[in-house]
């Protein structure tokens, strides 16, 4: 495409937008509303998933060993566990460490009554941290078959709950995003159809002069693209300013839950949100206008 044709196409696309000011504004507003809602959902979801992931990281499977097991066998079991794909990290807790921790946590001033004895002599263990809690079941099944392991402790409820919550969030957000996407496509399609009606005379002249389908259609597709991008950029600016305020308010209001409510920074959220929202806006614009132009402009 020649530069003069490209410039003409962009100029005509912009002209279309200003010719149908009311429709263009309505379209931008709708896309902006959709992208704004999407951004809110996204911010909530990534923060929630971040919290879930942090909670997941704290979920561990603990294995204890048969009485009188050798240190070499414990080492071997450790190596076997490390090779599993489900495992992200493994920590050995010796009998002494286990007793020290127990004393500190539960005995306090009564610690002396036990003297130098270690009642947890056979309670050395591995604490195994997972890549994904949904994999816990398969790992536990494996561990129960390993020779030398006497007991496997797991937190089945935490694992199931966190895992299903993650899936639920993903499905709900997908459904909402899909609905918003379809509404936006419908609206942009109406605006472009309006533009085609207004420019019917010009289109007829272009066709008679010998303009190709591409040259006739391109300004309308550009119009949709510009509306889509503009509609996506506005809510991003709004979300940028709103996000920090909301996070600050939440931290202040729910101080007691500070350890659980670990929010991502606006930069961390925007690294993915900005390209996704802009592609979404551009996609809505392109798809809506492309199909409307194909339907209404048989040139």
């Amino acid at each position: 495409m020649r530069i003069s044709t490209l410039l003409y196409t962009i100029k005509q696309g912009l002209k279309n937008i200003f010719r149908n000011k009311v429709f263009s504004l309505a379209t931008v507003a709708t896309i902006a509303a959709c992208v704004f809602l999407f951004s809110l959902f996204y911010s909530v979801i990534v923060n929630f998933q971040n919290m879930v992931m942090k909670a997941q990281a704290g979920v561990a499977v603990t294995v204890f060993f048969d009485e009188g097991i050798s240190d070499e066998r414990i080492q071997e079991i450790g190596d076997l566990i490390k090779q599993r794909v489900e495992v992200s990290n493994i920590e050995f807790i010796s009998a002494e460490e286990a007793w020290d921790s127990f004393k500190e946590e539960y005995l306090g001033e009564y610690v002396d009554t036990f003297g130098d004895d270690n009642p947890l002599e056979d309670c050395a263990s591995y604490e195994i941290y997972l890549n994904d809690v949904s994999m816990q079941d398969s790992l536990v099944k494996y561990l129960e078959t390993v020779d030398g392991i006497s007991k496997v402790n797991q937190s089945a409820m935490a694992a199931t709950m966190l895992s299903s919550m993650n899936s639920l969030i993903a499905y709900v957000s997908l459904a909402i995003i899909l609905i918003l996407f379809l509404v936006s496509v419908f609206l942009i399609s109406n605006t472009v159809a309006m533009g085609i009606t207004v420019r019917r005379e010009e289109i007829a002249i272009m066709k008679l002069i010998g303009a190709t389908d591409f040259v006739v259609r391109a300004p309308f597709v550009i119009e949709g693209l510009i509306l889509g991008l503009f509609g996506a950029a506005l809510p991003l600016i709004a979300v940028y300013f709103v996000y920090n305020r909301v996070i600050g308010y939440m931290r202040e209001r729910f101080e007691a839950l500070a350890s659980l409510l670990q929010f991502l920074t606006v930069q961390e959220v925007f690294v993915t949100l900005v390209p996704v929202a802009l592609i979404m806006g551009a996609g809505i614009g392109l798809i809506g206008s492309y199909f409307t132009v194909r339907k209404n402009l048989r040139v």
Partner: peptide
């Protein structure tokens, strides 16, 4: 069938533009 929002030059140039003539030729 002239384009009312464009002047004489632009109306004639339009015919060249839509068949992708270069700016120099136009």
């Amino acid at each position: 069938r002239l384009l009312k929002d464009r002047n004489v030059y632009e109306n004639v140039a339009f015919a060249q533009l839509v068949i992708q003539k270069s700016a120099k030729e136009i």
